[in-house]
Design a binder for these strands. Structure first.
Lengths: 226, 226
DNA sequence: TAGTTAGTTAACAATTTGATAATGTAAACC
DNA sequence: GGTTTACATTATCAAATTGTTAACTAACTA
């Protein structure tokens, strides 16, 4: 995510708001606050936060009501909702989660733990992070999820081994890979192939892309340089 | 998900295992258990659970160690990890989450709350945006609620598996799906079918729609591209 | 119960890919 | 200047992968 992550805190106790804001700000989050349930809904709409921390016991509308409302609105589909409460009874805990809350934390709250839990939730929310593996270098783009390379807007289709070899090198531009490293990474340790095989594949990549993005380091190996 | 959700419980106290298993089973989850850290890792590999509940204090390997190990393995990327502990100190709470845990719960645990929290975590894992029932790409429309595809205004009726395969690929256009992914998503992990089965279905889809919207990536898999 | 449909498998054809050998080339070394 | 060394190039062939067709089975339907 490019823009800073936005978090809305809704609680009627100014002390709580202040201490949580302080910790979240310190970590680079953009924070907005609300002092009751109605304001929480207003701010949710205007601020469009990525995460909303809701005290259950608030004037005007309870955290439960706000949570239920937010969950009924499509634009808050992906918004994390963390419910805070002084009550530690099982029933409200379960109710909070059933209304669509992502976490339910009983007071007294350690700000560090709260922040830690929110971080854990955000981590889970980024499923594409590990999937999206796109390397870009100048006008060359290498996308492993699509198994394709795009150079100056033109897509070039590489064979499996060619692609894997290019991807390995391009993942660490400038770093020289020994022939042995390349063999074990791309071909695996079990397969036994000759040294010349690498040369041939390097040549094919150069030919297909039409650019010399792979540099030979004589007597050592190859590196991606573009 | 077609197949039942699998949960692994690791705790050295048989009572805890029994009561949690009971509740999870009742809700239709498939449950496996382990009595120490080493067994937890073994079972994680053989059982391939969607969620792992780890007691922190276990013989052989602690929950922290197991958690750290699992997070270092790529195949457990998407596996939920819930840590249980008798200690309620802030430091281990934060440590557990930083090691990659998705939730951290202090004992004594209410089984209902535990189950409720796990459900909340799973709910978040479900793709909300791609929950869209209708996929459109150019003049092709794929409607899962009616199980039909409309191309240039003409409705084409695909068989169940054909449709599910097309739907999976079309949900993420351009993304290459490995054969293994396709098998586990469309056919499920338990069913064993040959590789040719996928080819045949792809062929049927191409024939019925009359367009080549599925591209073969040799040695890798298939992708939707239109 | 015969006919239909979906799903799967098997067999073979078509295609692509990968590895190797043979040869060419350029720099390094003596 | 000849020799050696290292890498590049080309051509070829075997192996792997996928496409296609046909046939079989199970479930459903009339």
């Amino acid at each position: 995510m490019e823009a800073p992550i936005k978090i809305l805190i809704a609680d009627d106790e100014p002390d709580i708001i202040e201490i949580i804001s302080f910790h979240l700000n310190k970590l680079g989050y953009e924070v907005a606050t609300a002092k009751d349930g109605s304001e929480a809904i207003e701010k949710a709409n205007s601020f469009a936060p990525d995460c909303i921390i809701l005290d259950v016991m608030m004037p005007k509308r309870t955290g439960f009501e706000v949570c239920e409302y937010l969950r009924s609105q499509k634009q808050f589909d992906k918004t994390l909702i963390v419910l805070l409460t002084a009550l530690n009874d099982e029933a409200s805990h379960i109710k909070g989660l059933e209304l669509g809350g992502d976490d339910f934390i009983s007071k007294p709250i350690s700000p560090k733990v709260l922040v830690s839990r929110i971080t854990a939730l955000f981590r889970r929310l980024q499923p594409t992070e590990s999937d999206k593996k796109i390397i870009t270098a100048g006008d060359l783009m290498i996308d492993i999820s699509q198994y394709k390379t795009v150079l100056k807007g033109v897509t070039h289709v590489l064979a499996k081994k060619e692609f894997e070899l290019l991807y390995l090198l391009a993942a660490q531009p400038g770093r020289v890979f020994l022939r042995g490293e390349i063999l074990s990474q791309v071909w695996g340790n079990d397969v036994i192939v000759g040294d010349r095989t690498i040369d041939v594949h390097v040549r094919k990549i150069r030919a297909k892309l039409g650019i010399d993005c792979i540099t030979t380091v004589k007597g050592v190996g190859y590196k991606f340089d573009y």
